[in-house]
Design a protein around this nucleic acid. Structure first.
Length: 550
RNA sequence: GCGCCUAUAGCUCAAUUGGAUAGAGCAUCUGACUACGGAUCAGAAGGUUGGAGGUUCGAGUCCUUCUAGGCGCGCCA
């Protein structure tokens, strides 16, 4: 139980003695202005209506009813329209640090998920080209969201869905074939809707070298398989360079071969939500909030294939059937129209899948600037900036932090030319530096940091304002983790790290640890150790390294 | 035209989900290195939160409307 929990409980108890309902749950906040104290609550204002009294009178009664000493409160004041401000005993507050030292690996961890399984799907790029900067945002977001969920008690699987079937793959195969034939001397004719990137040429060259029997480029299936395998391998290397590991790779093609697509179509037909029109099969998605019905199966005149959303529905059925009762899809905002469609398909099947399944985290587009101009990202035209370029340019940590420091639903401008100069001022180094500094204290003092337990240390001497601020900041970590996990917003961790680093740097600069009177050195070592562990924990959630020296 | 997202300091972004005097970084200006790392610190300046109404003790946050931008609206994926 954190100190905030204890204070909340005491507030609830006091409120009930005044006649408040049993389920009263006071909200504690850190006041913006530290001169207002360490904790503040608006409880008296929210109770004004149900109790029929003035907020300030209720606040006074609450103060009288509370046992302040038991929760370390040294002063309580009423302010403004009825805020209650609490001031804490410094030593009482600092003892919260001991929980960090006792179990560094569980600091901030919560059990919201109760070990239930959740699948987080992200990147899911078609194997038709290298991963570009937009995929990088997904990789950073998806990975951090996954770690956040693990941190809060979920059993998480990271999944990559490969659209290795359908029209785009056929285009890839034909584009490869055109390049293979061009190598053989034929004029280069990239098909309509085909891919123009140089990487197709390279794949074709390797194909020719490894398939001397098909120099003419007649075996389209072989070229398709070869190109897909080559691009999947490239994408794997990209993700490896970014430090992202997937637990499962799910192939769209398998949904056809194992009968899932057919089963889904039969289920939808049986549901009564389908109809035929002009030779095509439609799903009445308007029954589930879509603005128009969608084609499931094209008419014979258009090829008679299933449209993409049919395997998409089948795919999400497998998620449910594989035991994931929670599913989160991280996708670019350009895919948002699929949300209604997929959910409609799952509802139409009526197989017990809840309405909001799956969850979506949409992120806005990434714009790339190069040479002062916007680079239009187009795989088909062959113009883009890859994730790997970015990592090579500025480093993994800086790229990850850059993606994660802002909310997903704001657009992101990535200026490639400024990437390097920005990287030197990237806040991630500021944060890592704070961690390295704490490590430096132990290095210079020749102290094994793991032996600092805080037992027998009087933490009451950590009374300097800079120390109290750092203590409070560190103890806010669990609440920050909860907020970030509940909202699937890793940028909150980035913001916490920045604040903590600032508080750490300030404290470090103002107050010396080593060479002080023993009582002070011992207490400050506890604070240094807690800061080191806290920052490392935050960095770990975002997938960033915590270097001991820089 | 319809749907989703966005608009906050010169720039890039926050704001504990409706709380008190809207905060950081970068850039600009002024200061601080003989102590654990100056990749740092202290300070200054910078705002009608796109406009207008509304809801209430209280609005950057919720509602209405307007403006501007992004994305989507296919028998493409």
């Amino acid at each position: 139980m954190t100190h905030a929990d204890a204070l909340r409980a005491e507030l609830s108890r006091a409120a009930r003695t005044l006649g408040a309902p049993d389920d009263v749950s006071p909200i504690l906040e850190r006041p913006r202005d530290p001169s207002f104290g360490d904790w503040a609550t608006n409880l008296a204002m929210t109770l004004a209506k149900p109790l029929g009294k003035k907020p300030r009178d209720i606040a006074e009664a609450l103060i009288a009813a509370m046992d302040m000493a038991s929760v370390g409160v040294t002063a309580a004041e009423i302010a403004g329209p009825g805020f209650l401000n609490f001031r804490l005993d410094p030593g009482f507050q600092a003892r919260g640090l001991l929980t960090i030292l006792e179990s560094p690996n569980t600091f901030g961890r919560l059990d919201i998920g109760h070990g239930e399984r959740v699948v987080v799907e992200f990147v899911s790029a078609n194997p038709t080209g290298p991963l570009h900067v937009g995929h990088g945002r997904q990789a950073a977001l998806g990975d951090a969201i996954s770690t956040l969920l693990e941190y809060t008690g979920w059993n998480v699987d990271r999944e990559f869905y490969y659209n290795d079937a359908g029209a785009q793959i056929a285009n890839l195969a034909k584009s490869t074939q055109a390049q293979v034939r061009a190598i053989g001397g034929a004029p280069l004719e990239i098909p309509e809707g085909g891919y123009h990137g140089d990487y197709i040429r390279e794949i074709a060259e390797r194909y020719v070298a490894e398939h001397p029997d098909d120099a003419a480029g007649d075996d389209l299936a072989a070229m398709q398989a070869y190109a897909v395998a080559a691009l999947r391998h490239e994408q794997d290397l990209d993700m490896q360079a970014f430090g992202v590991k997937f637990d499962t790779y799910y192939l769209e093609s398998s949904l056809y071969t194992d009968g899932s697509v057919n089963k889904t179509v039969e289920g939808l037909r049986a549901s009564g939500h389908t109809y035929e029109e002009e030779g095509a099969l439609f799903l009445r998605t308007t029954d589930f909030g879509d603005d128009k019905d969608r084609v499931m199966k094209k008419s014979a005149a258009k090829g008679g294939d299933y449209t993409y959303f049919v395997p998409d529905v089948a795919y999400h059925v497998t998620k449910w059937e594989r035991g994931y009762h929670r599913a989160i899809n991280v996708q670019g905002a350009d895919h948002h129209s699929t949300i209604t469609r997929v959910r409609a398909g799952l509802q139409a099947l009526d197989i017990g899948i809840p309405k909001g399944y799956p969850d979506y985290v949409l992120h806005q587009m990434v714009t790339v600037m190069k040479g002062g101009e916007e680079v239009k990202i187009s795989k088909r035209a062959g113009s883009y900036v890859t994730v790997r370029d970015l990592i090579d340019e500025v480093g993994r940590d800086a790229v990850r932090y850059f993606y994660l420091m802002r909310k997903g639903d704001s657009q992101l401008v990535f200026d490639v030319d400024l990437a390097r100069s920005q990287s030197e001022e990237n806040p991630v180094y500021y944060v890592q530096m704070a961690h390295a500094r704490m490590c430096g204290i132990f290095r210079v003092g020749e102290i094994d940091a793991t032996t600092v337990t805080g037992s027998g240390v009087d933490l009451g001497v950590l009374a300097e304002p800079a120390e109290q601020e750092l203590v409070k900041q560190l103890l806010d970590f669990p609440a920050t983790v909860k907020g970030a996990a509940d909202n699937l917003e890793p940028h909150r961790i980035a913001a916490w790290l920045l604040e903590t680093a600032r508080a750490g740097h300030t404290w470090y600069h103002k107050h010396h640890v080593l060479g002080e009177p023993e009582a002070i050195t011992r207490a400050r070592l506890v604070l240094a150790r807690a800061t080191q562990l806290g920052i490392a924990a935050g960095l770990r959630i975002l997938g960033l390294s915590a270097p001991e020296r820089m």
